[in-house]
Design a protein around this nucleic acid. Structure first.
Length: 490
RNA sequence: CGGGAUGUAGCGCAGCCUGGUAGCGCGUUCGCUUGGGGUGCGAAAGGUCGUGAGUUCAAAUCUCGCCAUCCCGACCA
């Protein structure tokens, strides 16, 4: 295997695949379309989960768990929902295998056919609303604020590790409310939580907005999303929040008695983010040397590499390093002291760079003499020699600075690749180059479809902060009241 | 499901056209060397060439079937 990795400018998708592999985040599995998330990659996902889970709890939600299997009759109940997911469902038809009587191996036992097929959940609205029926009777039972962490299966034709796999991990929030207004507020609140997480934890700036009807979740009245820009200028939908109206309450007969004693259908929301966020994290920050991680999500925030020849040298270094490790840990900083003699220091430098560790300290005989340590930061690839005295505080500040810096960098990149466009020729040219294009649209699905066919760009969202501004549709020239966000998307 | 390609050592590949002892790089193991950016040298281990059939004295190589994977399209968080 060559030591360098493919450059972003040469082949962006190859670069992405190599980062995933070389940083040991995940690998393709023996099972078509499914990935193995490796320990280092999973550690990042766990940090994401922890932060998100805390945010869900802080907004009043509780975790629960619902079955992997969805009876086909449940999935059928909400018609649009069923239609939307039908094409990508894995179906369980039998419950037993048996030894092949005519040869080696096992066969599906034809006598063990299920009376009703079970669908492996592509999402859990159906099972959950079937359950909610039993949980909701009175206005006092509302709001019902539930979240679950689980895996789901969507049988994709073409898969890409983290970005689109047949099986993936996610979190799905499902809530029931007494009023439409309350449900809409919840939908907005949770999109806000996602935006907060993306920007303040992942350091990925996002555009919040509403999906066009074409791009809406099957069964939703309104879908909101956060859209992030990757370094190739393409958009990645990084989280969605849906206002489901009373569709599921009606489909599953979830009614409650309001304060006036009348029966009403409950109002629903659902919202989710998935392991796709790992893809966003990689593609937003990493460079031609490997992964770049925001300190807040890095499994290892600081690595310390001793430079030594003899065991005596190492002992002298460790004597200085040990108290520093304690001090860093006391500040809640995760630190790894890599005194492993199996690899050389130069090899370690390259390896931790590849894995995106935000700060690397190197300490050798020279430093012991001078009372210093070499501090290297991953985001800028710069090094400085700093006095060992007071280094813990310095590192703490440095981690915060790195977190802020990679956000700034990503935001600057997005701003430099976002364009206001008013003519169709400009539109095609800008989309071709990559980036976000803010343009007027006549509001029809037909126009959206035509633009997609001609340019591969879709409406990523109608941004919440889009100002009212009279204009003409980029494609048809019809009147438009505001600009929407167009881009090619993952 | 349409179009294209690939399957040879743990990984990345050459060999196939023109059939005749299975090779290279990385990694692995051992020894020495080196140690502030993937050290250098030497030795060694490791493959029923995706699979099944056929042609042939002889098949990684030619023919046919099957399987799997990847890329490009239609579908998608």
């Amino acid at each position: 295997m060559s030591k360098g990795i493919t450059k972003r400018s040469e082949n962006y998708s190859e670069w992405y695949n190599e980062i995933v592999k070389r940083a040991e985040l995940a690998e393709n599995s023996a099972v078509r379309g499914c990935m193995v998330i490796k320990p280092y990659g999973f550690a990042i996902w766990e940090k994401m989960q922890r932060a998100l889970d805390d945010m869900f709890k802080a907004t009043g939600h509780q975790n629960a768990y619902f079955p992997l299997f969805v009876p086909k009759s449940f999935l059928e109940k909400e018609e649009e929902h069923a239609e939307g997911f039908a094409k990508e469902c894995a179906v369980v038809t039998h419950y037993r295998l048996k030894v092949n009587p005519e040869g080696p191996g096992l066969i599906v036992d034809p006598n063990a056919r299920l009376e009703e097929e079970l669908i492996i959940r592509p999402t859990s609205e159906a099972v959950i609303w079937n359950t909610f029926k039993g949980w909701v009777q009175s206005w006092r039972d509302l709001p019902l604020l539930i979240n679950q962490w689980c895996n789901i299966v969507r049988w994709e034709m073409r898969t890409r590790i983290f970005l689109r796999t047949a099986e993936f991990l996610w979190q799905e929030g499902h809530t029931a409310h007494a009023t439409e207004q309350e449900a809409i507020e919840e939908t907005e609140r949770m999109l806000g939580v996602y935006a907060d997480f993306a920007e303040n934890w992942m350091a990925v700036p996002v555009v919040q907005g509403a999906k066009s009807p074409n791009e809406r979740f099957a069964g939703a009245l309104e879908t909101y999303s956060i859209e992030a820009m990757m370094q190739d200028g393409k958009a990645l939908q990084s989280g969605t929040s849906h206002f489901l109206g009373q569709n599921f309450a009606k489909a599953f007969d979830v009614k409650f008695t309001n304060k006036e004693g009348q029966l009403e259908y409950a109002w629903a929301t659902s919202w989710g983010v998935s392991t796709r966020l790992m893809g966003a994290l990689i593609m937003a920050h990493s460079d031609d040397n490997g992964l770049v991680l925001p300190p807040k999500l890095a499994p290892i925030q600081v690595v310390i590499v001793p430079i030594y020849k003899t065991p005596e040298d190492l002992a002298a270094i460790s004597e200085k390093v040990d108290p520093l490790i304690s001090e860093l840990k006391a500040k809640g900083i995760s630190v790894k002291y890599d005194d492993d003699d199996k690899q050389r220091s130069g090899w370690k430098f390259a390896e931790y760079e590849l894995k995106g560790v935000p700060v690397r300290l190197a300490i050798g005989a020279r430093d012991l003499q001078n009372g210093t340590v070499e501090v290297a930061r991953r985001d800028t690839l710069t090094k400085e020699t700093v006095a060992l005295d007071g280094i813990a505080g310095h590192i703490e500040n440095l981690l915060a600075e790195i977190q802020a810096n990679i956000f700034r960098k990503a935001l600057k990149f997005r701003e430099e690749h976002t364009f206001l466009v008013d003519t169709w020729d400009d539109f095609k040219a800008r989309i071709e180059e990559g980036g976000f294009v803010m343009a007027h649209w006549d509001g029809t699905g037909e126009t959206e479809e035509a633009i997609k066919t001609e340019t591969k760009a879709t409406i990523r969202c109608i941004p919440f902060n889009s100002v009212e501004e009279a204009g003409k549709c980029i494609y048809t020239g019809k009147d438009s009241a505001k600009r929407v966000l167009f881009a090619k998307a993952y």
